[in-house]
Design a protein around this nucleic acid. Structure first.
Lengths: 361, 361
DNA sequence: TTGAAAGCGCTAACAA
DNA sequence: TTGTTAGCGCTTTCAA
């Protein structure tokens, strides 16, 4: 066969619909300038006649030229790209963090690779490996539990990394976490200010560091407020509404004093507690006030009454993670475990004047 | 000053901790071969003496060489990178989709850029623009509502794009959606099989296409099952537990017949309905059975009793979106609105033999 | 079996 | 003011 004949058109299926993006070379050719000139015009740099500059920009606009970041990254040191490794398969905590982070980085024209490792170290390693291949400028690591985890690496050593809602077992690493203990203190101070004297704490499993920290805050704030620690008023269980109901049943059937307030380890427990109280004919908040944790609207707003809760300010945490990462990328060193304040969101489950419906001393 | 003096060391802050990644040039130099040879060895291609190949690979391993994807992408046609534009700021529906999509694409060594547009067209456009600069091979668009939206572009024209849980107002675009109508049919068939005759439908706002489709499924399945359409048994409101409770109150206080089953437009409504029934002394499922929609465990498992629900199989949807996008990237054309089946997940709120506790005909 | 060199799209230093 | 060119890290011919 004659090789000079044009080859047959490729079959429909394999004909890609993407037409190759125009390059700076195309712009230069059409605008009848050199590539260097075109580059200068497009990057608004150097001295150039206004006329040439305009012509180049016009042509670029007309043919839909868009610089190729890949090519730029190749000889800038930076790819303007970071990776985020998430280990929260449900996303309830991770999502607001990631969202705020992404928003903050978008302002800086940095794009975010999203990788879900779902607590599988092999997958995680694979993802990090891929991200290194993509020459990301930094890494963010998130998790569902705020417990210590082995640091990324050593294969990622030297890469700016921020752990957020997650804690690396490496003193040099930067970890950004909510101040769980402080959050608990907020809750107890609030209840104490309302005149409550017998505050119980119903919470999740103790293998969560958050549980241990909130517990510590509970006890320290009680004593700071001059309130007695009552036997049987600290109940650790699981993170469910059912446990909230159970725990309330236990508190009500016991021999000892009955609580006039509950501080719950999360909003699901708090909601279960609210249901159990209502169904036992105990009024919230007049007889028993409730404060939850997480400020998860799905729970706090649907509960009857709506729940006062502690907000971990996850969006702020995500935004700050972005900022710290940007700092690290530009060479600033940082490390250590840093905790950010929670805030109290008051709703009906704890509203009302202190002591109005209470026996006063 | 003498220019030949070495410049002062940069201040601590600006000294970046990242040591430049080794290049193939480094590998070649240390292994004492040419760059071409090193490349051949690393890519397992071409004929090469086993000895040289081993030496190159050993050196590469020792110095931690990792190919630079950016450089590769530059003259491959593909970047092995896609972008996902999400418009669901809460993430409840989007998250499982994105997660499955990311997992599927990771198998193909394709990385995912995550962009949240939060329903702001300007932000969306900005993101698409950035993604085009990064030379992504494709785009996935997700939303919170499965309603029609303007297509991405025309600036992204020609770029393989899949709309998932989201529908482009463009007949050529590929949209992947759950079969809401079929889901409703599943629910009604299930209840009819249990012997229920008076099935009410409590749902969300009609401006959601999903509401209209589920409504259509409700009516068509009723008539297919030979069941009467009862006046006042279709109630459209909002997506909340409170509305579920309200709607039940309406159904119970009305003059007409009382329902023996409820099909709810989502699980929050269903949970509210379950609460209202229990508090009215009506037993679920013996007196009134309930089926929800979304199969959101936070609701279905916490409700008393646990809720039967329709699952939209979002993970499967996400995985398929990944597959279709891969197809499109490799040149396969696809388009149209494609709906994927939902499935029924039976729990206590509708369990039990048909008619055992019911008046039978 | 190995090496040399062109080129992917872009920037920046230098030359004209 | 504009053009030329080296080179970012890699692959891929072609030559040796």
């Amino acid at each position: 066969m004659d090789k000079t004949f044009p080859p047959a058109a490729p079959p429909e299926e394999s004909r890609t619909p993407v037409r190759a993006a125009p390059t700076i070379r195309d712009v230069a050719r059409i605008a009848e300038v050199s590539i260097g000139t075109a580059s200068k015009a497009l990057n608004a740099g150097g001295r150039l006649s206004q006329e040439t500059r305009d012509k180049v920009l016009r042509v670029a606009g007309e043919i839909g030229y868009r610089p190729n970041d890949l090519a730029q990254s190749l000889h800038r040191a930076k790819s303007r790209t970071i990776g985020i490794i998430s280990n929260d398969s449900f996303g309830r905590f991770t999502f607001p963090i990631v969202e705020a982070l992404e928003e903050r980085l978008a302002d800086e024209k940095i794009a975010v690779f999203m990788c879900n490792a779902t607590d599988d170290p092999a997958r995680e390693r694979q993802h990090v490996d891929q991200l290194l291949g993509k020459r990301v400028d930094g890494l963010v690591v998130t998790a569902r539990r705020a417990d210590k985890r082995p640091p990324i690496g050593p294969f990622a050593h030297g890469l700016p990394t921020v752990y957020v809602f997650s804690q690396a077992d490496d003193p040099d690493a930067l970890s950004l976490l909510p101040d769980d203990e402080g959050g608990a203190v907020l809750a107890i101070e609030h209840l104490a200010k309302l005149g409550r004297k017998r505050i119980a704490h119903i919470t999740g499993p103790e293998h969560f560091e958050a549980v241990r920290l909130r517990k510590a805050g509970y006890f320290s704030a009680l004593s700071a407020a001059g309130l007695a620690v009552i036997d049987g008023f600290y109940l650790s269980g699981v993170w469910s509404e059912a446990w909230g109901r159970d725990a309330v049943a236990r508190l009500l059937t016991g021999q000892g004093p009955k609580p006039d307030a509950l501080f719950c380890g999360n909003d699901q427990i708090a909601r279960g507690a609210a249901d159990a109280l209502r169904e036992s004919g105990i009024e919230v908040p007049s007889e028993v006030a409730i404060v939850g944790f997480d400020n998860w609207d799905v729970m706090t707003l649907a509960a009857r009454p709506p729940l006062t809760s502690i907000d971990m300010n996850l969006k702020a945490l995500g935004r700050e993670a972005g900022e710290r990462l940007i700092d690290m990328i530009s060479g600033k060193r940082a490390g250590g475990v840093q905790r950010r304040p929670c805030s109290l969101v008051v709703r009906e489950s704890s509203e009302g004047e202190a002591g109005t419906q209470r026996e006063l001393e």
